[in-house]
Design a protein around this nucleic acid. Structure first.
Lengths: 138, 138
DNA sequence: CAGTATCCGTGTGGATACTG
DNA sequence: CAGTATCCACACGGATACTG
């Protein structure tokens, strides 16, 4: 695997020299934002919140995900301690994934963001339409 | 400007056919996640929460941001109705940016995520160390 | 000062083929 | 079944130069 295994903080904010802006917002926050902001992690977390699932089950449920990205995503979540991976020693292999208690609390926290979005989606859509119209007619 | 101006939902979930997984989590949520998950938006929002700022002021404060990305980021936030842009008709030009009421509520909502991260960062760091060690010694 | 325009390197993620 | 390995396309964002 060539990516995502040992991503170091890339911002200079984490070094002693040179943090001009509110650093505490970044660094640690950045890392979980990179997780929930990526294409699939949040979706996997949301699905596993309903109970444990097998690899193929996830793959079938998440429309459009590649085998590779499902693996990568699950590994990252496992590494962060958000998801637990259980291998059953049978043939053919059976692997179950479930949220850890930590993962459950993260999902709960993200819910407020989901709620915010649902509440304000119309407002945002209107704002975008207004903006685009203003730009187009100038 | 070649990017970010009219990004359409790319997921098939938003079409009538083919949504297998919990679609409501995506689509609308995806769009604000793309915003707060990107490299600079959250940082700009956090800074503007302390009061309005000028373009150059933001540029100086946010270490490492390019002129281009500051402009792009601000335009996106403006388009979403999260940031208000005020041009003062003077020479040299003076442009102020401030959070809209909507932007303020988003920032407030994100705070819970920041808090969660601060609370669990040690736990995550330990989990990663454990995982990496396990992978290395096999 | 506050942008825009252009060019270009890199990382993220998709497609495909192969395996214990 | 549950992965790995490899290759590749394209979007994101950085550097630089120019402008009302």
């Amino acid at each position: 695997m060539e990516e995502g295994t040992s991503k170091e903080p890339s911002h200079s904010c984490c070094t002693e020299e040179a943090f001009q802006w509110d650093t505490r917002e970044d660094c640690d926050v950045r890392q979980i934002l990179d997780r929930i902001g990526d294409k699939w992690s949040l979706l996997v977390i949301a699905l596993l919140d309903d109970g444990s699932m097998r690899f193929t089950e996830l793959k079938k449920t998440i429309d459009g995900i590649s085998q590779r990205m499902l693996t990568v995503t699950l590994r990252q979540l496992e590494r962060d301690g958000l998801v637990k991976r259980t291998v059953h020693p049978v043939v053919p292999p059976r692997v179950d994934y479930e949220l850890t208690p930590l993962g459950v609390t993260l999902h709960a926290t993200i819910q407020s963001l989901v709620t915010w979005t649902e509440t304000h989606q119309t407002e945002i859509a209107r704002s975008r339409a207004r903006y685009d119209a203003a730009v187009a007619s100038e």
